[in-house]
Structures are given as C-alpha cells and as structure tokens.
C-alpha cells in the first residue's frame, strides 16, 4: 500500500488553483509535456523502487519515496533538459531521501549512504531471490560472498551489478566520485571471485 492518502492521488481532485503542487503543474502542462514525462519515467519505475528499497530498507517507505520523487520530478520537469533521465531521477530520489532523513532521522545523516545501503542481502532481497537461488548451488555461495563484503563494497556492487546502474548513476546515489565507485566495485568483485574460488566453485575458473 502506498503510504499516502488515496485522495492525494485522485485525478478528480487535481489542483487547478495555481499553487506550486505537482498536480497544479500537471493541470497546466500540455499533453505532450505530460506524455514526455511519462515516457521518460515509466521505464525507470522498477529501478527507482529497487534503489528506494535499498535506501529505506522497507517496502512501504520505499513506495512513499518513489511517490515523492515522482512528484518532485514532475514539478522540476519544466527545467529538465531531457538528457540522462535515469540519472536525473536518481538524483531527485537521493535528495528526497536525504531531506526525509533531515526531517525525521537527522541522526542518520552523518552516516555515509553506503553504510545505510544494506545489502543485496536484506530480507526483501533474499525472499525475492529464493526461487532463483534454489535453481543453482552456485547462488547460495555467491550470496554468502556478497554478504561478506564490507558495507561500502557491497553497496556499490549491489547498485551496479544487481540494480543495473552505471558507474555515474551509482555515484549519484551514493554521493561519491565516479572513481570511488569504480575502485570499490572492482575490489568487491575481486573479493567475491576469490571467495567463490576458495569455496571450490569451478564455474569461476571456467
């Protein structure tokens, strides 16, 4: 369930009063503008949810975060140049999340994003991958290897390899330089590889 009042999303309640809310923008936007927004955002919904889930660690807050991100994106769409929509949306998502923390959990703001990003081994992820994991003896060993990484290394590996972000996009989410993403990712993979080899998985050696 979205953690927002359904009426907030009711099209019949669309705001036409000229205030700054996203529904007011939607009411004023031309149909091609809204269609363009839709075209850019729709393919990224799953990714936004996965990254939101990693940041919030729970499904309902993750949906709320995506909801707020889409509203902010719609408000800002007029000034968006249309390039790199995924990176643009991820930046809005990250900033929205940081604003939420600032309001509700300022104690967590001092932590690095990477330390808050769990895993690729959070319960949601493990549940969702359970079926896949059963299909192969390799996958449980792999998940153990990923879980054994440091939080920083795991976060980058999960964002790039599991969530499919580019180095630049992962850097946006984690608020670190691209070079840091690259070096952490490479170290993470090296460690996963050596752990799989140590566990005697010939798949890695070919």
């Amino acid at each position: 369930m979205l953690g927002v009042a359904p009426s907030r999303l009711d099209a019949s309640a669309r705001c036409r009063t000229g205030c700054a809310c996203p529904l007011a923008w939607a009411a004023m936007a031309t149909s091609p503008q809204l269609e363009r927004f839709r075209e850019l955002v729709l393919p990224e919904l799953d990714l936004l949810y996965r990254v939101a889930l990693r940041l919030t660690r729970a499904p309902a807050p993750a949906e709320d975060l995506v909801h707020d991100t889409l509203e902010r994106a719609l408000r800002a769409f007029d000034g968006f140049d249309g390039r790199h929509p995924r990176a643009w949306l991820l930046t809005i998502l990250r900033n929205t999340h940081r604003n939420d923390l600032r309001r509700h959990r300022p104690d967590l703001l001092d932590q690095q994003d990477a330390e808050r990003l769990p895993s690729g081994g959070g319960h949601e992820v493990e549940d969702a991958t359970a079926t896949q994991a059963l299909a192969s003896q390799f996958d449980p060993a792999l998940r153990r290897a990923i879980r054994g990484l440091s939080a920083r290394h795991r976060a980058v590996l999960v964002l790039v390899d599991i969530d499919g972000l580019t180095y630049r996009e992962a850097a946006e989410v984690l608020a670190v330089p691209v070079g840091t993403v690259m070096s952490r990712l490479h170290r993470a993979r090296r460690k996963v590889r050596s752990r799989l080899e140590a566990a005697g998985h010939p798949e890695v050696d070919g």
Binding site: D46, R50, G120, E124, V125, A128, T129, Q132, S136, F138, D139, L142, R143, I146, L157, D161, I162, D163, G164, R189, V192, R193, L196, E203, V204, D205, G206
Partner: peptide, 15 residues
Amino acid sequence: TYERVIAAIRRQRPP
C-alpha cells in the same frame, strides 16, 4: 572469469 562472476551476480537481481 570476470564475465562469469558478473553474470552470476546479475542473476541475483530480484524483480
């Protein structure tokens, strides 16, 4: 080798 490692990690992606 890295192609296999990366492919295996990518298979962990939950829908």
